[in-house]
């Protein structure tokens, strides 16, 4: 790992000042940042240690929702009573990610900002990676690309966002709160991560001088019927090939409202609006389910090794909805 300046932030202002000076990264759980620094993918001049900032609480909001501090560890969030009871989808997504040790370290902010696990991005032995080195090309377009995107990619980058937590947050209409010396912002989860387009080096809308302070959740109508389904190469401690957050608001067996969001298929949590349309107003019979499954991958464009993800995503959507309806 290359050397860097280290600053321990005692107040939020310390962190904002350090970030404003540039070439600085926040150190939260460190589970993604230090990994990438060891691989020389990230080379920050300075780390600002934000782990002592008072951002580790979960507070109720007047509208009945919750505000989750950016430093809440993934394991604590998954086990918070209010999350387990009112947002079980989020609890399920969190415990399906990484390992217990990593979840104890990983924070909400770090999880939001974790970078892709694309083989060519994480290995500097590959010269061409537009995300790592803008303009250098994309090795994944021609190389083995089994784990890559089937939706929303571009000819510059076909990497996927690896997070489980973010997929559930997108289904729960979460909002990311940020602060910089210029002021505070609220960014809807769905707009927070970007599609690669011509600037795959930018994963999110967050600016380099901004600190994520919290994520808010509105009250949810989906607590009774939701399911996070993760499909991967081994049973645990592996990233998703495809994952589905299915959240249903049911009136008898009729769907009043729904969110279907896919993970492992795009550069951001992929909201499958066509699948939601196929569900809302309908009874949950086999015809509706298979229509929703098929609609979930509308516009999919697989590459040479990952066509299987299209079928896998469709089937996973059907199963997640079925299991969600049953709970």
């Amino acid at each position: 790992m290359r050397a860097f300046d280290y600053v321990r932030a005692e107040r939020i202002d310390d962190a904002l000042t350090a970030l404003a000076e540039g070439n600085t990264r926040c150190l939260a759980g460190g589970t993604n940042l230090l990994d990438l620094m060891k691989g020389d993918v990230e080379q920050p001049a300075r780390l600002v240690d934000i782990t002592h900032l008072p951002l580790a609480g979960i507070e109720p909001l007047p509208d009945g929702g919750l505000r989750i501090g950016a430093l809440v560890p993934n394991s604590d969030l998954a086990n918070d009573r209010r999350i387990r009871e009112r947002y079980p989808l989020l609890a399920q997504a969190l415990v399906s990610g990484a390992s217990p040790q990593l979840r104890n370290m990983a924070t909400v902010g770090g999880n939001l900002l974790q970078r892709t696990r694309c083989h060519y991005f994480v290995d500097v032995g590959f010269d061409a990676c537009n995300k790592r080195k803008p303009g250098s090309g994309c090795t994944a377009l021609e190389g083995p690309n089994r784990i890559h995107a089937i939706l929303g990619a571009s000819n510059r980058c076909i990497a996927v966002h690896p997070s489980d937590m973010c997929v559930a947050l997108a289904a729960l209409d979460a909002v990311v709160e940020t602060q910089s010396r210029g002021g505070a912002r609220r960014i809807a989860m769905h707009d927070f991560h970007r599609l690669p387009g011509t600037t795959p080096q930018r994963d999110t809308e967050l600016r380099h001088d901004e600190l994520v302070t919290a994520v808010t959740l509105p009250p949810s109508p989906f607590a009774e019927h939701s399911r996070y389904l993760k499909v991967r190469d081994r049973a645990s401690y592996a990233f998703a090939l495809v994952s589905v957050a299915a959240a249903l608001d049911l009136d008898g067996d009729r769907v009043r409202d729904a969110r279907i969001v896919l993970g492992g298929v795009a550069h951001k949590p992929w909201r499958a609006r066509d699948a939601e349309h196929a569900l809302v107003g309908h009874a949950l019979d086999d015809a509706t389910l298979s229509a929703a499954g098929a609609a979930a991958t509308h516009g999919a464009r697989p590459y040479h090794d990952n066509a299987f993800k299209v079928t896998l995503a469709q089937r996973a959507v059907v199963r997640a909805i079925r299991e969600g309806a049953r709970t």
Binding site: T31, S99, M105
Partner: peptide
């Protein structure tokens, strides 16, 4: 590399001593 920090298990390889 699992160790216990304040009774919680973590991976010591992805933690900085100074933190």
């Amino acid at each position: 590399c699992t160790v216990l920090v304040n009774d919680r298990r973590i991976n010591a390889c992805l933690a900085l001593a100074i933190a």
